[in-house]
């Protein structure tokens, strides 16, 4: 019924079903993401896009179907979650930095705990990833001293420090004003240009159109339409036309 799992796909969802009680959130979702691809998932609130992203990272369990991520069978109850975590980074809408740690300590925590890196190595790594998001000068500051955009860039750097093969972005700019959104998107665009495989749930249509190799429009728990960014200029369905139109 659906295409066989592509051997080289980094992420592969096949006929995924997920309900919260009586509420069907994902209703037979299938899509693949190849290495180096940037996939943008768009859709109204409640369309299941964030849930799909959370399922990929095993933050939600699915009732039916299969999810393969970097060689891990995520749908399998015997999944080694910590092994999956080493391959997948995720950035949240609310940043979720640790408030009692400095920017640098936030970044160093996982490499020292999970990869048993020495403090000195981890500090060097922290400086390196902070440079990639343009925040080397903020290493000694605490999250509350930074703007929302800066906090989100630190959250991205914290994920990058674990050298993930796949990065997930869950509406990472939704809490930011346009200027701060711009600085976060710039970082994401440079990651994409560097060949990072990324899946982002976003409301930034212009960004999706420009940067994404594939755009997926979700509606009522289904992949309603998908294609290259240019698909947004010629919606095939009434729903996507309405969704794109409402954004103007």
């Amino acid at each position: 019924m659906h295409a066989p799992v592509s051997a080289k796909a980094v992420v592969s969802l096949s006929n995924v079903h997920k309900s919260f009680g009586a509420l069907k959130v994902l209703d037979g979702v299938s899509f693949d993401v190849g290495p180096g691809e940037v996939t943008a998932i768009i859709g109204q609130s409640g369309s299941g896009k964030s849930t799909a992203l959370r399922c990929i990272n095993a933050l939600e369990t699915i009732q039916e179907g299969s999810i393969h991520v970097c060689g891990h069978a995520v749908h399998d109850p015997a999944l080694d979650r910590r092994a999956l975590r080493r391959d997948v980074g995720i950035v949240f809408q609310s940043y979720n930095l640790f408030p009692h740690l400095t920017v640098e300590q936030n970044i160093m925590l996982a490499p020292t705990c999970v990869k048993s890196m020495s403090k000195a190595e981890a500090r060097e790594l922290a400086r390196e990833v902070l440079a990639r998001v343009g925040l080397e000068a903020k290493a000694e500051q605490y999250p509350e001293q930074l703007s929302g955009g800066q906090q989100q860039r630190v959250a991205i750097a914290r994920s990058l420090a674990m050298k993930p093969k796949l990065m997930l972005f869950d509406e990472v700019t939704s809490a930011l004003d346009p200027q701060l959104t711009g600085e976060v998107l710039k970082v994401m665009e440079s990651l994409a240009a560097g060949g990072m495989t990324m899946i982002l749930v976003t409301h930034e249509m212009a960004f999706a159109r420009r940067v994404a190799s594939t755009v997926i429009y979700m509606h009522q728990g289904k992949v309603w339409e998908s294609g290259p960014g240019s698909m947004l200029d010629r919606p095939q369905t009434e729903e996507l036309r309405g969704f794109v139109g409402s954004g103007l």
Binding site: R85, R86, V88, F92, N96, F98, C113
Partner: peptide, 9 residues
């Protein structure tokens, strides 16, 4: 959740 996603036990 953030700590879990970073791989912390």
């Amino acid at each position: 959740e953030a700590a879990d996603c970073l791989g912390l036990s």
